[in-house]
Design a protein around this nucleic acid. Structure first.
Lengths: 208, 208
DNA sequence: GACAACATACCAACCAGTCGGTATGTATTG
DNA sequence: CAATACATACCGACTGGTTGGTATGTTGTC
């Protein structure tokens, strides 16, 4: 009884890396800072990761796993109508836009923008994270399209990806103003676009 | 006669800085690299700029001036209908999405994302650049709104800003794939949103 | 006793910024 | 008109703190 959580050292390092990189960017984040934040030594760091780049790849994959679970457990999946699920996803993304930009901002979006020319491995891991997450929206979008506007001019994949692009762009403007409300305001245009595309005006209530 | 262009040293430095930072990011760009690219020495660099941060602010302002002139001279302003001008702006943004991401990507968007917590001065200069550019779209959007859908639920400022956000997001996905076409595909959703908002389906032909 | 999981001490490279110096132009003044 | 004074533009070797990475030691565990 009273089992301590005992977070593995590797996860402690990755958690600290995610937090710091989201604040300061990948390049500006010092390995020493990550170790200090995680409460481990440099020896531990280089025991688990060959170099900083390998840690970056691991962090991107870790981010995919963490956020994947987070969104899988989110309530918008419970809607019966696929369009409600898609709109519910956007509403959910809007609902979590709170606090400092570093709190709601996307690790892989930030990182791929910064290192896309410096590290092919990290870039690939980030790209996979973004596009695989987008892919989770495709079934609902495709079903909604079939129900509400068959023969549309856009592909479900493309719309799913634009959803991510619009959010990433909202994050950039929010970092420029420093305000979460900026991101919300931008994301509401995304929501309106989704409504207009499916020629509906429904309001999806948040479930809990 | 035969006057050489004689680009000022300061501009040579800023041009090189824009090119390199768009490729590698602000933090990863070395002052020595900028000097080498510009064909000047470090002494010249620090004669013109107090430190790297001051150069970053100057580069953001320089970017505003260069792109400001570029867009002011673009052909979409010639349309008689304000909505055509707005849609023409988006088409123009799509038309210039060619080459490597570093070629069509936004200096201030990239930079503000990277250093928003590290340098308040650079962040402010980048934010000004983005929002002032967005502001140039407001008159056309406002006029289009009055003509085609008075009493809309969105403000012209907000839509102008979302235009920038969507493009910034398109850039991020393009950096992830390495392809300009990704940015084009994303931007076409922005174009479709603009059409749907004003309940029209016009096709603005490019002028030349 | 062998191997994983760390800790500690250390190094070499990198890089922003400094500093003494030069070259050229311009304003002033006797 | 020259001589002096000063300013601007620029050069490039140097430095000192930072930082990714290494080498080696210690502890626990199967």
């Amino acid at each position: 009884m009273n089992e301590k959580p005992k977070i593995p050292t590797r996860d402690k390092i990755l958690n600290s890396a995610l937090r710091l990189v989201r604040q300061k960017g990948f390049g500006a984040t010092r390995i020493d800072d990550i170790c200090a934040e995680a409460g481990v030594t440099k020896g531990a760091f280089f025991h688990h990761f060959k170099d900083k780049e390998a840690m970056g790849v691991a962090a991107a994959n870790y981010w995919s796993a963490v956020t994947g679970g987070f969104f899988a457990a989110a309530p918008y999946h419970l809607h019966g109508d696929p369009l409600d699920r898609f709109l519910g996803y956007i509403d959910f993304r809007i609902a979590i836009l709170e606090g400092e930009p570093a709190d709601f901002t996307c690790f892989v979006g930030t990182t791929v923008q910064e290192i896309h020319e410096a590290s092919a491995a990290i870039k690939q891991a980030c790209a996979d994270s973004i596009f695989n997450h987008a892919e989770t929206l495709v079934p609902d979008i495709a079903a909604a399209q079939e129900m509400h506007c068959p023969g549309a001019a856009f592909s479900p994949e493309s719309l799913a990806q634009f959803t991510q692009a619009a959010l990433q762009g909202a994050f950039i403007l929010a970092k420029a103003t420093g305000k979460a409300e900026t991101a919300v305001e931008m994301a509401q245009h995304l929501r309106r676009y989704a409504e207009l595309l499916f020629e509906t005006n429904r309001h999806v209530s948040t479930q809990h």
